[in-house]
């Protein structure tokens, strides 16, 4: 069963109709190919109409779509070879972040990403993609490892945020994130970061300090979730609905298109019509192209130059005014 979001309902109706017609034509010897074709064309038009006018809140829902490809899905599609590495060597292994060496088109890279789960059991196992401090410490360990062997680092960002739990606080969630931000800014190999779904606040950024940053067409990246923002602004705990979330999502300017406009990211990676889950191979192919091109572009830079440019990139981010005297 395909999962449809509310705003996809008109598409769902059409697609169900098409399927039913196809089933009918299988049973009886009726020729309804042209009718099916007509409907399919209509469905495609409807999809492109709906998907070219998505609101920020609709994009948020799409970025969290339960069928959306996750880090390990992309790794499977992108890489000829992958060996997952585990643990932070201090406390535990956090399943909400995965990482390891991989091969993309013959190039060895270190891939690290947030990992959400599919289905209730795996979702809980992956803690809904919300890392503990150990996840960030594992990520940093792997990045330092890659640095020693001069391998490019690819990070996939897809998390609602770092986990807000008692244990996470006891073991230094803030310190773990801060340390990644600082260390990533001075890692001596190239870092390419791609937001594939939800870029939720500091917990996302902790894998996102990079030389090149891309976002999938329908991904989001924000300082706070629309729900969190709405709760702060309208302070009606528990009483908020999608209308308010939608308003908050508008205000936050969290879409890939917004961030490209702000020059925070380098480019947008196109998704297939209907979102990455409609054709994961297509999305993976586009991601692979972007990764390979970025590695190529960055390959002739010395470590010193890489770090200097990464620093300058961060240094210029900010929007303020200097008063004249």
């Amino acid at each position: 069963m395909r999962y449809y979001l509310d705003f996809e309902k008109p598409i769902e109706e059409l697609e169900l109709k098409i399927e039913e017609l196809k089933r009918l034509s299988d049973r009886k010897d009726m020729d309804i190919t042209s009718a099916v074709k007509k409907l399919e064309k209509k469905a495609k038009e409807l999809r492109s109409e709906i998907f070219s006018n998505l609101s920020p809140w609709q994009k948020t829902l799409l970025a969290r779509h339960p069928d959306r490809p996750y880090t390990l899905d992309y790794i499977n599609l992108l890489c000829e070879d992958f060996i997952e590495l585990h643990g932070d060597r201090r406390f535990s292994d956090d399943p909400a972040i995965v990482g390891g060496f991989a091969n993309i088109n013959g190039v060895t890279v270190m891939i690290i990403g947030h990992q959400k789960g599919r289905g209730t059991k795996e979702r809980i196992y992956r803690n809904f993609g919300q890392p503990q401090p150990e996840g960030y410490r594992k990520a940093l360990r792997l990045m330092k490892f890659a640095e020693r062997f001069k391998k490019p680092i690819i990070t996939f960002i897809d998390t609602p945020g770092a986990y807000p739990g008692i244990g996470a606080e006891e073991r230094g969630q803030s310190e773990a994130i801060a340390m990644n931000l600082m260390e990533m800014s001075r890692i001596k190999t190239s870092i390419i970061s791609i937001v594939i779904g939800e870029g939720g606040s500091g917990g996302a950024l902790a894998l996102g300090v990079a030389d090149r940053i891309y976002m999938l067409e329908h991904s989001i990246y924000s300082v706070i979730s629309p729900e969190g923002c709405a709760a702060i602004l309208w302070k009606k705990n528990g009483d908020l609905d999608s209308e308010e979330f939608s308003k908050a999502a508008d205000a936050l300017r969290l879409t890939a298109q917004d961030l490209l406009g702000f020059k925070i990211i380098d480019d947008i990676i196109p998704e297939p019509l209907g979102g990455a889950h409609r054709d994961p191979e297509f999305a993976a192919k586009k991601i692979s192209e972007v990764i390979l091109k970025s590695i190529e572009d960055l390959s002739n830079k010395t470590p010193g130059k890489l770090i200097e440019e990464r620093y300058k990139r961060l240094r210029r981010i900010g929007s303020f005014e200097t008063l004249e005297d």
């Binding site: 994130i177 801060a178 931000l181 600082m182 990533m184 800014s185 001075r186 606040s201 500091g202 950024l205 996102g208 300090v209 990246y221 924000s222 300082v223 706070i224 923002c229 702060i232 936050l252 300017r253 969290l254 917004d258 961030l259 702000f262 925070i264 990464r310 620093y311 961060l314 240094r315 981010i317 900010g318 929007s319």
Partner: peptide
């Protein structure tokens, strides 16, 4: 981080850490 400056606020975290 200051919500009203959205992604610009988030990125300050990386900037000051660097």
């Amino acid at each position: 981080a200051r919500m009203q400056e959205g992604i610009f606020s988030l990125m300050q975290m990386a900037k000051v850490s660097a």
